[in-house]
Design a protein around this nucleic acid. Structure first.
Lengths: 152, 152
DNA sequence: AGGCCTATATATAAGGT
DNA sequence: TACCTTATATATAGGCC
């Protein structure tokens, strides 16, 4: 967006590309944070570079935003690929007896594993819901807004 | 940021505030999308207004980004509030026998309820993990970057 | 890599229609 | 309400350290 009247070129390459990537990423995060603070709102940005690196910013934190997002009705129209043996997986999860372990006795790593497994089950359920929703003609746009209250 | 040399005032009010909120939100989303396309990356933005309204943008979709994020190790350092009776809730969830219902037989609304309950359990586990992590002196920054590969 | 500079492109606050 | 317009603030590409 700058210093070259024209810059129709898709990209230069290598190091320059990475420098620009970093600058723009920082700019995006900065804007998100300013947006959140200026309006007393919550905002999170997460990005994966082409190489697979993860970057994120959250105000107040990415995880708190995601927890809140996942609790919203709109999160049930997940866009993921269809999954079939949902009931099978859930049955396995219950029968394995993991969930009645006393969570209070688990360490950090173990809790992480449990959370990951529970998340897996939830994703299966959500995917099945998305499947049904898709069959009913609904679709999930890249952009959305969902009412939670009355204003803003 | 404009037309007033100074605008130290926190905010004007009412309709103007909402207009500005909308413009800036759109600007943020636009930037995120441009960022993702320019660098062949994936990016998602989610925001909750003060009133609790949800807005989001994802490229290729918010949900696909979140799924990918949740599979990352860093997602296990959630920042949520501490929760106590984790093991109790999990025990109840299992004993209620809901999870071995055949998911394939459930309708959209029922699936939503199941997903919500599973999510609740996951949040409990994650919160307990956050509690332990906090006790160990770790903290969860608003911003982060996690390696997934070698470049970018 | 990370910081500073500068010219230019974008974003955007107010106000108008 | 939503869409222009315009003046100004930010972001940022490309250099240079």
């Amino acid at each position: 967006m700058v210093r070259r009247r024209i810059e129709i070129k898709p990209i230069e390459d290598k190091a320059k590309r990475h420098t620009t990537f970093t600058k723009r990423r920082q700019g995006l995060m900065k804007k998100a944070k300013a947006f959140a603070t200026d309006f007393e709102a919550e905002a999170a940005v997460i990005t994966f570079s082409k190489a697979g690196n993860l970057f994120g910013l959250g105000h107040p934190s990415v995880d708190s935003l995601l927890d809140r997002y996942l609790a919203e009705p709109s999160s049930q129209l997940a866009t993921e690929t269809a999954i079939n043996g949902a009931e099978k997986r859930i049955g396995e999860g219950v029968e394995s007896g993991r969930w009645d372990l006393a969570v209070g006795d688990l360490g950090l790593e173990e809790l992480g594993e449990v959370a990951a497994e529970v998340e897996k089950i939830k994703r299966t359920v959500v995917a099945r819901a998305a499947e049904i929703a898709a069959a009913e003609g609904k679709n999930s746009p890249g952009e959305f807004s969902g009412a939670g209250s009355t204003i803003e």
